[in-house]
Amino acid sequence: MAADDIPVAEVLAEDMGKLPMEAWLVALASLPAVGPARLRALLATGSPAAVWTRLQGPPSPELMQVAGKHDLYEQWRRTAVSLDVDRLWARHREHGVGVAALGTPGYPSALSHDMDPPAVVFHMGDPQVVAGPRVAIVGTRRCTRYGSDVAFELGRDLASAGVGVVSGLALGIDAAVHAGALDARTAPPIGVVGNGMDRAYPERNRALWRAVADQGVLLGEAPLGAPPEQWRFPARNRIIAALADVVVVVESHASGGSMHTVAEAAARDRAVMAVPGPVRSSASDGCHELLADGCAPCRDVDDVLLALGMSGAEAVPLDSRPDPDRVGQQVLDALGWQPADAEQIKGRTDLTMAEVAGAVEELRAAGWVAVSGRWIERVGITR
């Protein structure tokens, strides 16, 4: 039988056997106009490889319903027929882009328990640096010199204290924050991007992207080739909020991306702080509204460390505590850096209450957590 005569189903079956599940997930994420919600809806209908196969076959009412528009479904079908999944997967490996599916060992534990976790996370750099306390610093692209200086100092001083600094790597405040974090050369920086990692956006921040990937990690949920479309950035902002134990707004106008990140943080019960600005500066209007609404003021790094439950002494990254065992690490990952009770930890893991209680007692004795009444809280930083 000639190669052209081999049934498509047989070719697909052979490809599915040699490609990992993540390759088909990358292909689905590469479909036109597929964001977090549509990708989640597609995966609800079957495995990534099975969904991809169905897109190449006769019209599927179930998948057409996910698309919502006939024209979009036709774009998906044409893409599924023409896209070389093997080559797409190879491109990600060639670019040094790792891929982790929700529920797999390589997926960042900081996102796995989120209310809206990405189905897939792309990363450049070391994803293991997403551990310990993390602070997101956000603000306007049209920042003042005052805002840029404060952002740089906060990024530098937090990183020096062993805190992972998170930003979206945009112009303005984001860029200043990570310039400061990189200057400290201590805690690895964490950048969250909204488009494919083969295209730095904005282009002016290309060197910053590269430095963050080299010294820390870039994270996102867009595959290679994904353009910086406007709808991708609110989705990115929810990941910034999900990664953060505290969100600090340095400068923000009354509306904009920073306020969207604040809303995502509030939905996740994350602490939000705001830097006071000059009363006549419109760049600080959003910060002043947050302060009027009761958010804590951020005057310097000590205010943020206090919100994290850390002091300068606790922040020193020298740790003689014994490593937690497997169950203890599960409890620490589920606990994060906000106080929680045993019932909440149990709900975030597959552990029994007895296992949680035993692990908490061992972690308390080793100095990893402090217990006050029913509340359990992390102490210091992990290695």
Rank of each mutant, 00 (worst) to 15 (best):
D5M: 03
V8H: 08
E10C: 06
V11N: 05
A13E: 13
A13C: 04
E14T: 14
G17N: 13
W24K: 05
L25S: 07
V26L: 08
A27N: 06
L31V: 02
A33W: 03
V34C: 08
G35S: 06
R38H: 12
L39A: 09
L39Y: 04
T45A: 08
S47D: 09
A50W: 02
V51G: 11
W52Q: 13
W52K: 04
R54V: 11
Q56E: 07
P59H: 09
S60M: 03
S60D: 15
L63Q: 07
L63P: 06
G68V: 05
Y73E: 12
R78H: 10
R78P: 02
T79Q: 11
A80H: 02
L83M: 12
V85P: 02
V85T: 07
W89P: 11
H92I: 05
H92L: 09
H92V: 04
G98N: 08
V99L: 10
V99H: 09
V99M: 08
A101I: 01
P105W: 03
Y107F: 14
P108A: 09
S112Y: 00
D114Q: 02
D116L: 08
V120W: 01
V120R: 01
M124P: 00
G125Q: 05
D126A: 12
P127I: 05
Q128K: 13
V129P: 13
A131E: 15
R142K: 15
Y146G: 09
L154D: 10
D157G: 05
V163F: 02
G164P: 09
V166Q: 00
S167D: 10
S167G: 08
G168H: 07
V177Q: 06
V177P: 07
H178F: 07
H178W: 07
G180K: 02
D183P: 02
T186Q: 13
T186M: 14
V193T: 13
G194F: 04
N195Q: 12
N195T: 04
E203F: 05
R204E: 15
A207F: 00
W209G: 08
A211L: 01
A213R: 00
A222M: 12
P223W: 01
L224C: 11
L224Q: 07
E229N: 12
E229M: 10
R232W: 06
I240T: 09
I240V: 15
L243A: 11
V250C: 10
E251M: 09
H253D: 15
G256W: 03
T261C: 13
A263G: 14
A267Q: 09
G277V: 12
S281I: 11
H288W: 14
H288G: 14
A292L: 12
A292C: 08
G294N: 07
G294R: 03
C298S: 10
V301P: 04
D303F: 03
L305D: 04
L308G: 12
G309S: 04
M310G: 06
G312A: 10
P317G: 13
R326W: 01
Q330F: 00
E343H: 03
T349I: 01
A357D: 06
A359F: 01
L363P: 12
R364D: 14
A365V: 12
A370P: 00
V371Y: 01
